[in-house]
């Protein structure tokens, strides 16, 4: 573990990313303490510029709501949606990919055609349709994001498992009488872990972006404040009140950037041989 941290630490970008993400997590966790009032409540006159009043450092939106409070509460939603939808899409993609890769042949064909069915539809359009059909709510958003983002997981797992399938330790496990389920769970999946973790960190970032885009289009959960929603709300007044869209946008940028940096750092630390070499 120590060794892993030492390798991770060598990638300075990844450490910066980790710090940013920690800040955002702290912000999300502390939001109800920092801003006990609902972020939807109107607290000041509309269009208050940032830093005009000490109590509202990021200003207010066209309805007089506190932008800082919206950013803090939005962090909760974004991180939650990003994390949960990634977990759900792993739960779909990992078994499908592992089974397709391990058994091959017709099972592989069937599962991969099924996967392609999802891949041929542009994923964001599919997410919009799904949320629109199921009524916007946190659940439907998470499900929609998971449903459009599992195919790459399945593809990755399939190729990893196919490569591991022919390794001697897997053949030895077959000979020692272990059943397919045991072999996949005990021999193969633990060896794909690093690929899965790296992919997951990138997927959380992608999920946050999809959620923001959905909220921007007005397809967010109407009961929770999210970054995308605030940007959408500030869109029409961007020339008078740039800060309404700017700060949540910055929050999205930083979070996604942080997650990508971490993903890259994890990749370097877990697959040291693939690391790009600098002279």
């Amino acid at each position: 573990m120590m060794e892993f941290w030492n390798r991770f630490r060598q990638n300075r970008g990844a450490v910066v990313g980790l710090l940013i993400l920690l800040l955002i997590v702290v912000l999300a966790a502390a939001a109800p303490l920092l801003y006990p009032k609902s972020p939807w409540s109107m607290v000041q006159r509309p269009f208050l510029a940032p830093f005009a009043m000490d109590a509202f450092p990021l200003g207010t939106d066209p309805m007089g709501r506190d932008v800082a409070s919206a950013v803090a509460h939005g962090a909760r939603v974004s991180l939650l949606v990003g994390l949960v939808s990634t977990v759900v899409s792993m739960l779909i993609g990992v078994p499908i990919g592992a089974i397709a890769g391990y058994f091959g042949g017709r099972i592989d064909d069937a599962l991969m055609r099924f996967t392609e069915l999802f891949q041929t539809v542009p994923s964001f359009a599919l997410a919009v349709v799904l949320v629109a059909i199921f009524q916007p709510s946190l659940y439907s958003i998470v499900i929609a994001i998971a449903l459009v983002s599992w195919p790459p997981v399945a593809r990755l797992l399939r190729s990893e498992v196919m490569a591991l399938r022919s390794r001697e330790f897997v053949e030895a496990a077959i000979l020692s009488g272990q059943r397919a389920r045991t072999i996949i769970l005990r021999q193969i999946l633990p060896n794909t872990l690093s690929a899965i973790i790296v992919m997951a960190s990138m997927m959380v970032a992608a999920a946050i972006l999809i959620e923001s885009s959905l909220s921007f289009l007005g397809l967010g959960d109407p009961n929770v404040m999210s970054w995308g929603y605030v940007i959408g709300a500030g869109r029409t007044v961007i020339r008078q009140a740039w800060w309404v869209s700017f700060f949540p946008g910055l929050a999205i940028l930083l979070t996604v950037l942080a997650l990508n940096l971490i993903g890259e750092g994890l990749n370097d630390a877990m697959n040291p041989r693939l690391k790009r070499r600098g002279k």
Partner: peptide, 29 residues
């Protein structure tokens, strides 16, 4: 009928402890 493999590096699962590697056959039966 059991087999001993060529590659001493590739034939043991790097993520399993040695005891478990040896015992998993009998456990499977």
């Amino acid at each position: 009928m059991q087999m001993i493999f060529q590659d001493p590096y590739g034939s043991l699962n790097p993520r399993e402890r040695v005891g478990r590697i040896i015992a998993s056959g009998p456990i499977a039966y």
